[in-house]
Design a binder for these strands. Structure first.
Lengths: 152, 152
DNA sequence: CTTGACCTTCCCATGATGGGAAGCCCTATC
DNA sequence: GATAGGGCTTCCCATCATGGGAAGGTCAAG
């Protein structure tokens, strides 16, 4: 009934994988964990609370960098709520941009598949569109680095 | 007035960067380009057409793997339109899932920032939420307990 | 003492893209 | 002809969050 937990327990309790806990320690998002004599990492309630904070922030799509800032503000008693809001607003803007991008892709693709006969004939509006050099709508540069930020 | 273009021209004409053209060749998405005696890659109209196809498919968010399939179907005169539709439908499903995920993040974050005072006071509903352990989202299974020897 | 679940560190892979270095090639200008 | 420059080549590294897996140490229970 100790308050100190191994990394596996901390992982199960927080929803952050053991692999990621070690990673967060290595990149400095969290401090170095206490160790047993054998070198096993140990986590108390405060550390697990922090890990849960991280997990929830990741669920909201915050980057690890953003989370570092949020953690700093969290531990700063004199923080200004607008500083937190600023981080959140920045992220919100990025999320909205990404959503708009994906929604426009969905829109375009829906129109294309709607015209597809879905049979054994070779005629296909999707390929026709993709190979149409006169197609203006898709010729523009769309933001790359399309969101692969998974949130599991 | 040759029809053969260097990689830089092909890039400008297709919207695919020279860097990516070489990359696509290396991973086998496109065939090996013809070369000058000095080793410079050369691209004709057909190759540039293919690059544009790729550019448009990427704009629609298709993965390089998907594009490989689409290119195969494009060049297959006996293809069935439903095969193409299948690839498109799979991608559409992924896009919809991604959109739903992002929209739910936006929704959650909007609610949080709406409650934020945006001033110099330390009170902040965003941090409050992130640190709230009663917050539903991640009560995962806990394993067993082992009494490892502690340093302290 | 063996077994097996757990822990450690270290390296590698993902996906699409860019940055940059070292060095070769081509052309225009002096 | 020599030189400057821009474009080409290949090769390696970084991103971002995450997982896979190997080799080996540790612990509790049978």
């Amino acid at each position: 009934m100790s308050q100190l937990h191994t990394i596996g327990e901390a992982a199960a309790d927080s929803g952050v994988s053991a692999k990621m806990i070690r990673h967060y320690e290595k990149i400095g998002l969290i401090g170095s964990a206490e160790r047993t004599e054998a070198g096993y990492r140990l986590y108390g309630p405060a550390e697990i609370h922090t890990l849960r904070f991280i997990r929830r922030a990741r669920n909201l799509g915050f980057s690890v960098d953003d989370i570092g800032e949020l953690l700093g503000l969290w531990h700063d008693e004199k923080r200004a709520s607008k500083d937190v809001r600023e981080v959140a607003a920045g992220h919100l803007g990025a999320l909205r941009a990404k959503a708009a991008e994906i929604l426009s892709m969905i829109d375009a693709l829906e129109h294309l598949t709607a015209g597809c006969t879905n049979d054994d004939r070779p005629d296909c509006p999707i390929l026709k569109d993709l190979s149409n050099d006169a197609n203006p709508a898709l010729a523009k540069e769309v933001g790359h680095k399309f969101g692969y930020q998974r949130v599991c």
